[in-house]
C-alpha cells in the first residue's frame, strides 16, 4: 500500500511538532507563565494585605542591589569555591571509575548516587550533627590545632561550602564519568606511542577529550549551588546567608513579594549571563 506522496511528506513535516507539543505545553504552563508572573510581580507595589498593583517600579532593582548586593557576591563566591572543590574531588574519582575500576565500576557508580536515596534535607541535617561544636569531628580537629573560624566548624562559611560541595558532588561525578568513559583508550595509547609520557598524554589527550564532562559537571554543580539556601540555613551563621535565604525570608516571612521577585529575577539573569560567558569561553577550547 502506498500513501499519496504529498500527504506523506506533509505528515512527516508536522510530525516533529506533534511530538514536541506535550513538552512545549508543559513548559509554557509550568515555566513560562510562572516566569512572566514573577517578572511582573517584581515591578508591582503595594503590600500583602492590600494587594499589589503593577506600577512598573524599576527602582526596586537598584534598591534590591543596595540591600542585598553582597548576598549575590557571597552566593556566587560560595558556589564557585564549591564547584572547584567538587571538580578537584570528582575528577580523580570519575577517572578511577572509568579506567581503573574494572568489575567494580557499577558498584562504585551506585555508591556515587547512593546519597540520593535519602533526602537532601536529611543529609544536610546529618552534617549539622556531624559538625556540631561538641561533636567528635570538631573536638578531634581542635586537638590537632586545625585552623578553624572561632574554633568551630558549624555555622561557618567553611561548613556551608563543604555542604554545597558534598551535596552537589554526584552532579559533578556523573557527567565527568560519562565523558571519560567515552574516550577510546586506543587514542591514549596512540599518544604514548607518539612519545607522550603518561602525564603529557593526560594533559594533551585525555583531559581535552573530557572537557564536555567538565563543562557539564561544573554547570550542574554551580547553578544549583548558587541558588541553594538549605546549606546556608543549617550549616551557616547569619553572616553566611545566600540569595536563596533572602528570597525565602522575603517571600515567606516578610511577604514582600516584589523584592523577593526582583531577587529571583536578578539571580536568574545573572546565572544566565555567567553561564553563557562560560560556555562561550569553554566552546573556544578544543571540545569534541
Amino acid at each position: 500500500m502506498e500513501l499519496p506522496k504529498g500527504r506523506a511528506r506533509r505528515g512527516s513535516r508536522s510530525l516533529p511538532y506533534v511530538l514536541l507539543s506535550p513538552g512545549m505545553l508543559w513548559l509554557v504552563i509550568f515555566f513560562l507563565v510562572p516566569m512572566a508572573t514573577l517578572a511582573a510581580l517584581s515591578l508591582q507595589t503595594g503590600d500583602y494585605e492590600q494587594g499589589f498593583t503593577l506600577t512598573w517600579n524599576w527602582h526596586i532593582y537598584s534598591e534590591m542591589w543596595t540591600r542585598y548586593g553582597h548576598h549575590f557576591i557571597r552566593s556566587f563566591s560560595y558556589a564557585f569555591v564549591a564547584t572547584v572543590a567538587a571538580l578537584v574531588i570528582a575528577y580523580p574519582l570519575a577517572y578511577a571509575i572509568a579506567f581503573k575500576a574494572g568489575r567494580w565500576k557499577n558498584l562504585l557508580l551506585v555508591l556515587v548516587i547512593a546519597p540520593f536515596f535519602t533526602s537532601f534535607l536529611v543529609r544536610t541535617l546529618a552534617w549539622q550533627a556531624i559538625l556540631a561544636d561538641n561533636g567528635w569531628v570538631t573536638s578531634t580537629l581542635r586537638s590537632l590545632h586545625f585552623p578553624m573560624q572561632d574554633g568551630r566548624l558549624l555555622n561557618t562559611s567553611f561548613a556551608v561550602i563543604c555542604g554545597l560541595t558534598y551535596n552537589f558532588l554526584p552532579f559533578m561525578v556523573l557527567p565527568l564519568y560519562a565523558s571519560l568513559e567515552r574516550i577510546d583508550p586506543r587514542v591514549v595509547e596512540a599518544a604514548s606511542d607518539l612519545y607522550a609520557r603518561p602525564i603529557t598524554a593526560f594533559r594533551r589527550v585525555t583531559f581535552p577529550l573530557s572537557l564536555p564532562g567538565v563543562v557539564a559537571g561544573t554547570l550542574l554543580t554551580f547553578i544549583p549551588a548558587a541558588g541553594d539556601y538549605v546549606n546556608a540555613t543549617f550549616l551557616g551563621s547569619p553572616q553566611d546567608q545566600m540569595v536563596g535565604n533572602v528570597v525565602d525570608k522575603q517571600f515567606l516571612v516578610s511577604n514582600d513579594y516584589p523584592i523577593a521577585s526582583a531577587l529571583s529575577m536578578t539571580m536568574l539573569v545573572a546565572i544566565l549571563i555567567l553561564v553563557s560567558l562560560y560556555i562561550r569561553r569553554a566552546g573556544t577550547e578544543e571540545i569534541v
Partner: peptide, 28 residues
Amino acid sequence: AYKRPVNTVFQNYALFPHLNVFDNIAFG
C-alpha cells in the same frame, strides 16, 4: 611505549579527535 623508537600506524587509525590534521601529524 613512549621511550621506544617505534611508531605504529594503528589498524583503527586512533587519530586524536580533538586535534586538527596538522596537530595530529605534529604530535610526535
